[in-house]
């Protein structure tokens, strides 16, 4: 079935709109002058040198740590919950499902500020200043938790729970069942949930706004501050590095899981 020409042209323009800005960023990162423009005045790689400077690198390290820890912990909390929600379908589970999905309703910056109030409260009442890195991780766990339940839950919805009885009848203990049957059968979902969670955490800005401290500033926040301050092409260079990392990850997802498992 042929598509109309008008529609095809329209869609080409839409993809131009989606992709042209990324192209501009790439070009602008090679500018020889210290302003963000397009077209560029001359070619230079110096912004890539500053992209690998200490502040960006340490921001990357923070974001990476936060992302990995938050992903793992939200999985630890999320997998049992997803299992329980799929297995037990009652009024009760529907109600607590809403509780578990409630973080989705809260704007990131509001959640960030409320956790900041919690931090202040503990500092005042218990005279303990919790490390900012820890609070960042807690905040990111909360943001990731609903995503984890949704992705893993999708896999559990397809799981036939009579298999659990079958395993038991064959003499398997609960632990055997979990390790040998349950977890292996949802491995693809765990992988997609991990990738999705890590990327979400790594890119999230609002949730960190009130929670980062000196020495624990996530990369996107550093980038945003630089853009607000002066906006020389080093941010563009960092962006390009991130873009290529993302392309790598996307390629890996596409090769290993296929796109359809992702983002649904």
């Amino acid at each position: 079935m042929k598509k109309s020409k008008v529609l095809t042209i329209f869609v080409c323009l839409v993809f131009f709109y989606l992709l042209f800005p990324l192209f501009i960023t790439v070009v602008a990162s090679f500018n020889s002058k210290d302003i963000l423009t397009y077209p560029i005045d001359g070619f230079s790689l110096k912004w890539y040198k500053s992209a690998f400077s200490s502040s960006y690198i340490s921001g990357f390290a923070i974001s990476f740590q936060v992302g990995v820890v938050a992903t793992i912990i939200s999985l630890c909390f999320g997998v049992p919950v997803a299992y329980g929600l799929a297995k037990y379908k009652s009024k009760f589970t529907r109600a607590i499902k809403n509780v578990f999905f409630s973080p989705v309703l809260i704007p990131g910056i509001v959640l960030s500020y409320s956790l900041f109030l919690g931090w202040v409260f503990i500092a005042k009442e218990f005279d303990t200043r919790l490390p900012k890195l820890l609070v960042l991780m807690l905040a990111h766990i909360i943001v990731l938790f609903p995503y984890t339940i949704r992705v893993i839950g999708g896999a559990f919805e397809k799981f036939d729970f009579t298999i659990e009885d079958a395993a038991e009848s064959l003499g398997a203990t609960k632990k055997d069942f979990i390790l040998h049957i349950l977890l292996p059968s949802i491995t693809p979902a765990i992988i997609s949930a991990s990738v999705l969670s890590f990327i979400t955490s790594f890119n999230d800005i609002p949730i960190s706004i009130f929670l980062y401290g000196r020495g624990s500033t996530p990369l996107p926040i550093i980038m945003m501050q630089d853009v607000e301050k002066y906006g020389d092409p080093s941010v563009a260079a960092v962006s390009v590095v991130l873009l290529f990392m993302t392309i790598g990850i996307t390629y890996l997802i596409e090769k290993t899981l296929g796109l359809n498992n992702y983002g649904r």
């Binding site: 993809f15 989606l18 992709l19 042209f20 800005p21 990324l22 501009i24 960023t25 602008a28 963000l36 423009t37 397009y38 990327i199 790594f202 890119n203 999230d204 800005i205 990369l219 996107p220 980038m223 945003m224 853009v227 906006g231 941010v235 563009a236 962006s239 991130l242 873009l243 993302t246 392309i247 990850i249 996307t250 596409e254 796109l259 992702y262 983002g263």
Partner: peptide, 23 residues
């Protein structure tokens, strides 16, 4: 096409916004 659509979602909002400063 799906990949091209989803791809910008995988980068952070700063990366996606700076080109608009240039534009």
């Amino acid at each position: 096409l799906l990949l091209l659509t989803l791809f910008p979602l995988l980068t952070n909002a700063v990366v996606r916004s700076i080109s608009w400063m240039i534009i």
